[in-house]
Amino acid sequence: MNPYKPMLAKIEKITVETPDTKTFKVVFTDPEDAANFDYKPGQFQQVSVFGVGECTFCLTSSPTMKGYIEFSAKKVGVVTSALHEAEEGDIIGIRAPLGNHFPTDEWKGKNLLFAGGGIGMAPMRSVLNYCLAHKEDYGKITVIYGSRTPADLSYKYEYDEWRKGADVYLTVDAGDDSWTGRVGHVPGYLKELAPSSENTVAVTCGPPIMIKFVLQELKALGFEDENIYTTLEMKMKCGIGKCGRCNIGSKFVCVDGPVFNYKEIADLPQEF
């Protein structure tokens, strides 16, 4: 097996999430690839636009969604720009699944708190949908999700589904004429809602500044470092621990991560 060789996949559906983010639903063109493919929530993939390059995305779909995978791409660089120009039916390359995953088995019997901001919802959506599909294994599930504006909220079409199994709280930094919900930052909302830390695991993904303040609030609520999870982001190329780019201390984010709890993160050199 050549770990550098991607599987071919067809873009089946493109959903415009926000002005700069699209979600791509893809299926493997080779039925054998499709049959052998399995993954866990939190794992990531390398997506190739042939002739342009490769880029890292988390699998935002959940393993419980069978027959396809999804990823969300914010338009920032060369590869993501090429993806944003792609059309349904186009062929791309996928190397997946890569990296570790959220320890959903260890979390069984616990309450779950998700605090996300902006595109940070992408990795959390996978584990959230997975846990909702196995609702009987977990306690109370709470979701706090915020973005800069109402237009920047992703996965709007799934909120009703989430609400069937979880308490969903939305907030935006700045509302618009149609926004009737809360206005404010995620950490502030977290402080206000003050969910109990007892028997609870927190997952937070989003912009670094949001994570910084969410962490402060979580600590104030009594969450222990080992019960707070996040996904780290580093530039990656090979995705299999060889090219050396995502090296932080003796860890490689692509192999030992991207999912870390804050106890593990505290032991790393603080350069990520």
Binding site: F50, G51, G53, K242, C243, G244
Partner: peptide, 10 residues
């Protein structure tokens, strides 16, 4: 030193 880059060209 083993670090490398992977790139595409048409």
């Amino acid at each position: 030193c083993s670090c490398f880059d992977m790139r595409d060209d048409l």
